[in-house]
Amino acid sequence: MTKISVNKKVFETDSDPSTPMLWVLRDEFGLTGTKFGCGIAQCGSCTIHVDGEARRSCVTPISAVVGKEVTTIEGLSPDSSHPLQKAWIAEDAPQCGYCQSGQIMAAAAMLKKTPKPTDADIDQAMNGIICRCGTYNRVRAAIKLAAMNGGK
């Protein structure tokens, strides 16, 4: 049994340590907000935080998070009160919504270290998250709104 702390709660898994966290989170821990999009770290739908930094969970093995704190979209805030979540709703950023957990988690990781991001900062941090609905401009606007509201 491997113990993993996710959203400040300890979970246990007996899966092989090489198993990607994405499937452990989704299928074992019931945290389905983290999405499968490509499986090769190209699309970013599976983005989580490990000790506060953005990680693509589809390529992050269990062994890489042991002893660290994992945060998923479900744990970003208890009640959707994170400034990014509020800004996302204010801008009506989501369309189909499938990539949005990844968008928000990547943005949250960026804002922690770059609280007042420029457009270039946003491009660099968010380029790894593909959205086929084309919500990029609203995502950008939402990040700026959250930053304006002092969000991390």
Partner: peptide, 15 residues
């Protein structure tokens, strides 16, 4: 549908 799509609670087929 925005609120359910910013906190991971929206249910897609894969979920």
């Amino acid at each position: 549908d925005s609120p359910s799509k910013v906190n991971g609670s929206a249910t897609f087929g894969i979920d």
